[in-house]
Structure formats: structure tokens, C-alpha cells
Design a binder for these strands. Structure first.
Lengths: 195, 195
DNA sequence: TTGACAACAGAACGATGGTTCTATATACGG
DNA sequence: CCGTATATAGAACCATCGTTCTGTTGTCAA
């Protein structure tokens, strides 16, 4: 039985290749990938994909995916009426890496343990993205070393005094003496449900 | 004044190009990119980057970034002792897209409004990633249409009866009659702090 | 059966890609 | 000042790339 080639199936194959190799396949590679025997067939599909704004080609014939091809669709809010899969608004589609991490070279991940920030919606096991070298403002969540121990707290500035407040009221406020080593500012929280 | 080229600066330039064009620059393009005038200089740096496991080359000379080049470093948990930026463990580095979204073509994003899932650490304004066509298990968070309205709730199966429970106890449990249209299962939560 | 059309095969072509080699410029220690 | 090492320049080379053209196969309606 012969698989019928469709725009979606071709796009899927190319995307799979890209995700694995982090580059576009060449026309010759696509010949194998699509299971055809001629580059002109590949060219036919490539033009279709360009027309569909999934691929784009610069002046010298270099292929690349559009932003749209990577992103996953983003629909409105739940209470505003939940659209059916067919009427998804594809116009506003984003990539997680791009959305979450503004400065990749100054950021790192940290796995949270403990319940001191549960009130802020940061649970044990969550991953937080921390940006180094950013000046915290009051209300920001920071990672700091206070008296030899690292903790994650709300940052507050009362006059000249700095106060670190936990979201969980069971934990006391911390007023560091002079030494406050700042690990960074929490810019995002990420939680993945196993499965 | 002439900028000294370093491994980091070259990597940064190439990464910037990649992020913008979603493909590797060619050697000729790198000549312009690095501000040199010969491809052999480019080749010199490429080899350095390959040695540093930032780039890799397949049999036919096709360049691509390694996984490592994209990912941001992940350090241990806070309470386990917070490493300084110098001693970051780079071995376990992940990309957000890859980490969060197992099936990109079956997933979409939804912005949360309301406080019905606050107890589960899902706040208003958060972005949830929803996977379609997955069979929910008890304890999963699902998006479902109950009697004409879309909501996000815990999924529970008591015998043959399905119960939708909010994390916020102020909301009553929902026991749908027969019609329960399932939008999908929440596989991840993402929150970005503005700034 | 035939005609029309779409999908595909295959080869030829010029341009560009990465590679390699040799020559020149710069920095630095003695 | 000299000699050595390192970084850069420039040119030549061929495999591969994407492009294009012509011809073949397959499908479906009349």
C-alpha cells in the first residue's frame, strides 16, 4: 500500500529531520526522506510549502523554516470561550524557548524544592528560569545567598533596607546584614506533568 | 579599536544568526559575520567550535549546532547547595521546547483566567500546554466542555462516573451527564514574569 | 479507448559550498 | 634585531547544491 503524500505529511517529515539534525535536509536528502526518486518532485513540494508560508527561501536559494512552522498555536483564554481545534487562531504562535528566555547566555535553570514559594504558584519540583546580572525590583522573586544559605524569596526594598519575604507565611522575613549575594532574578516558572 | 575574536564571541554570532534565520550560515556568510576576509579563517574557528562540541559536522560536511549549544545549563536544587556560576553542571542541559512539548503537532497553548486552579499552582495569566487526543487518568488536569462551558479541572474516575474537581475548594465538583467534550490534557504550565 | 492533466523520473547545468594549500601579516621572546 | 609561532589572506579545487528542462507514468472523465 502506497502512502499518499500530503502537505502535512511532508512538513512533518521535514520537521522531524530538522528537530533531529538541527538543520534543513538538502534536496538529495529529501529524495530519500520523502521516498521519491527525483529532485524535481522534491522541488514541487518545497514550492507548495513556501506558498503555505511554512518554508522560506532567501535570495541564494537557502531554505529555512518560518517561525510559524515551529510554534504551537495559541488560542484565547478559557473563559472567553474555548475554540474548537478547527478554529484555532494561528496568528499568534510562539516558541517556548524564545518566549521564556530573553537572554539565553545569562540564564540557567534551577529545580525547586521546598514549599516556601507555594503561595506564588511555585511548587516543589518546578523548574525556574533565572537570569543573572539583573537588578531586582520590589516584587521580583530572587535567588539569594543569605548568611551562607541559598533561598528563593520575594525581593523588597524598604528605604535602604532589603527584605526577603517568602510567599508562604510560615516562613519568617529575612533581613540580611550586609552580605547579600544575589544568584539572579526568577524570570519564568515551568512545570511539566509527568506522562 | 579591534575586537579580539574569542570562541564565545564567535559562538554568539553564529547563534544569533541561527536564531534569526533558523539555519546555519555558510562559510561565505561567516566571512562577513565574523568580519574576516578569508574562508580559511572561518574554517579555523569552526574547527575550534567542533572541538568544543558546540558544532558538529556530518559525513558530507554539513554543519549543525549540537543540542548543547542551544540549551541553558541546569543546576541542582536550591536546597542541595547552590553552585556558583563557575561550577555550573553543564552536562544536563535542556531546551524548553523539547522538554515541554512531546507532541508539537497535537499541542496548543491556552492562557488561563480565573482562580479555579490556583491550588494546583496554576494562576491567572499562566500559559498551559494542552495535548489533544490523550486519554486522561485520574489526577490529570484536563480542559473540558461541560454543559456548554469550557473549564479546567482535575479529572477523576470513580467507577464509571467521571468527576471534574477544581483545585480551589470554593468551586463545586462537576459531574457531567453524558456529554463531556474533552479539549485535552494539561501537560505543562508556563509562567513568565514580565520584565 | 482516448485525451487531458497531474505526479513523477532522470539528466544536465551553473553556482555555491566546504576544503586545502601557500603566502603574507602580526605578536612576542630572546 | 632576529626568529618563531600564530592569525589572517587569497586562490584553486571539486563535490554538492538547487534549478530547470524533457520525457515517462498514472489517473480519471468522457
Amino acid at each position: 500500500m502506497k502512502e499518499k503524500r500530503t502537505l502535512q505529511s511532508v512538513q512533518k517529515l521535514l520537521l522531524a529531520f530538522f528537530r533531529q539534525n538541527r538543520r534543513m535536509p538538502s534536496f538529495s536528502e529529501m529524495v530519500d526522506l520523502l521516498g521519491v526518486r527525483s529532485k524535481s518532485v522534491v522541488n514541487f513540494w518545497i514550492e507548495k510549502l513556501i506558498e503555505a508560508r511554512i518554508l522560506e527561501k532567501d535570495g541564494k536559494g537557502h531554505l529555512s523554516f518560518t517561525k510559524q512552522a515551529f510554534a504551537i498555536p495559541r488560542v484565547g483564554s478559557i473563559q472567553a470561550g474555548f475554540p474548537s481545534p478547527e478554529e484555532e487562531v494561528l496568528s499568534d504562535a510562539i516558541s517556548m524557548d524564545e518566549y521564556l528566555i530573553a537572554r539565553p547566555d545569562a540564564s540557567f535553570l534551577l529545580q525547586v524544592s521546598g514549599d516556601s514559594m507555594t503561595g506564588a504558584g511555585i511548587m516543589a519540583g518546578d523548574l525556574v528560569i533565572i537570569e543573572k546580572g539583573r537588578a531586582p525590583k520590589t516584587g521580583d522573586i530572587v535567588v539569594a545567598e543569605v548568611d551562607g544559605e541559598w533561598t528563593m524569596k520575594y525581593f523588597q526594598k524598604q528605604g535602604k533596607q532589603i527584605v526577603l519575604v517568602a510567599a508562604n507565611p510560615r516562613y519568617p522575613d529575612i533581613r540580611p546584614r550586609s552580605e547579600l549575594r544575589l544568584g539572579g532574578v526568577v524570570t519564568a516558572v515551568v512545570r511539566k506533568y509527568h506522562g
